[in-house]
Structures are given as C-alpha cells and as structure tokens.
C-alpha cells in the first residue's frame, strides 16, 4: 500500500505555549475497532497477545510505549499507533480514521483550568484521573478527551474542525493566563 505522509491538521500552527500551558499536535495513526457479534473475547485476546494490553473498558485508556488502546464509544475502541490491524480485522471491523481526526496534546500546571472553560465534563483530578478517557464536547464539537498524566490531556476532534479547536483552545489558554497575571 502507498505510504502517505503526515499533513498537519492545524496547518503547522502548533506547538504553542500560553501562560504555563502548551499545546502540540500529535502525528499518530488512528483506527476504530468494533468486534463482530460474538467476537469480543477473540478481539480482546488479539490486543492482549499482540500489544500486551487489556481490552479497555468504559472510560479506560491503556498504553505501552507509543501504542494506545482507548474506549471510544458504546461500540468501539480506538487503537493509536502501532497495532495488529490484520489480526484484529479477522474478528472485528477495523476502520482507518487517521485522516479524520485532529489530535492535540495539552499540558502544563493550569491545563485543567483551561479545559474547564471548554467542556462540561468534571475535569477535577479526582474525577478525571490519568488513564481515563471520556467522550464529551469541546465547546460545540464532539470530542474525545483523555488524561495521559495528571497535567497532560489528549484532545481529539474531527479534522474538519481543527481550526475551530485551535481558536477555542487559544482563547481559553489566553483567558487562564490573563487571570493568573491579575492575581
């Protein structure tokens, strides 16, 4: 198959840093996986054997090196990075959506204050811990929001909305930074 080269969804507008929060674009392949009827166990076995990871339950995100598996919706998980796609495709519907999503990592000590301005999720540390992933909104956009570390989140929106994400994210980062200066 032809190897396609990565083209930035944000038009190379990242990385940026405002106040103590940084945003950087992630270049990763993304596949959605929906096990065929009655094949959940087999799909989980492939993920366990080939990736060394347990099948992610609701709100779970697991990774080994740069390979991630994460709960994605009521019937899908997503795999990010290297994954045993051919083996998974025998027991599940596997869809390459790498060019359909824009992936941005945001991190820094005020990152939760920034997210609080963007999503109705409860993003307090005790409710949104590292290793958790949730589907919700970023402003009006359907998003996938994952907590990779205490002060690092991975945001995903449809690629067609990358510039809107950038706008909303920058606005929130500027507001948080401006408040920090005033106090």
């Amino acid at each position: 198959m032809v190897e396609l080269s990565f083209l930035s969804a944000t038009g190379n507008k990242l990385p940026i840093k405002i106040g103590n929060v940084s945003a950087t674009e992630v270049n990763a392949t993304l596949h959605l996986v929906a096990p065929f009827h009655g094949k959940s166990t087999q799909a989980a076995t492939v993920v366990k054997r080939e990736m060394g990871l347990d099948w992610p339950g609701v709100h779970e995100l697991k990774h080994r090196g740069k390979s991630y598996v994460l709960w994605f919706d009521h019937s899908h998980i997503a795999v990010m990075g290297e994954a045993p796609l051919a083996k998974l495709a025998r027991v599940a519907a596997v869809t390459d959506v790498s060019d359909g999503w824009c992936i941005v990592d945001v991190y820094g000590s005020d990152v939760r204050d920034v997210l609080a301005r963007l999503t109705p999720l409860d993003i307090r540390e005790q409710h949104f811990k590292a290793g958790m992933t949730q589907r919700s909104m970023i402003m009006h956009m359907q998003a996938s929001i994952s907590c990779l570390e205490k002060s690092q989140f991975r945001l995903m929106v449809f690629r067609s909305m990358a510039r809107t994400l950038l706008h909303d994210l920058t606005t929130a980062m500027e507001s948080v930074a401006a408040r920090a200066q005033k106090v």
């Binding site: 609701v58 919706d73 009521h74 019937s75 589907r135 909104m137 956009m141 359907q142």
Partner: peptide, 8 residues
C-alpha cells in the same frame, strides 16, 4: 441520543 458522548 447521547450525541456528543458515547453515541448510545
């Protein structure tokens, strides 16, 4: 429909 959530 949990439109911007899990899709269920």
């Amino acid at each position: 429909h949990h439109e911007t959530g899990c899709g269920a």
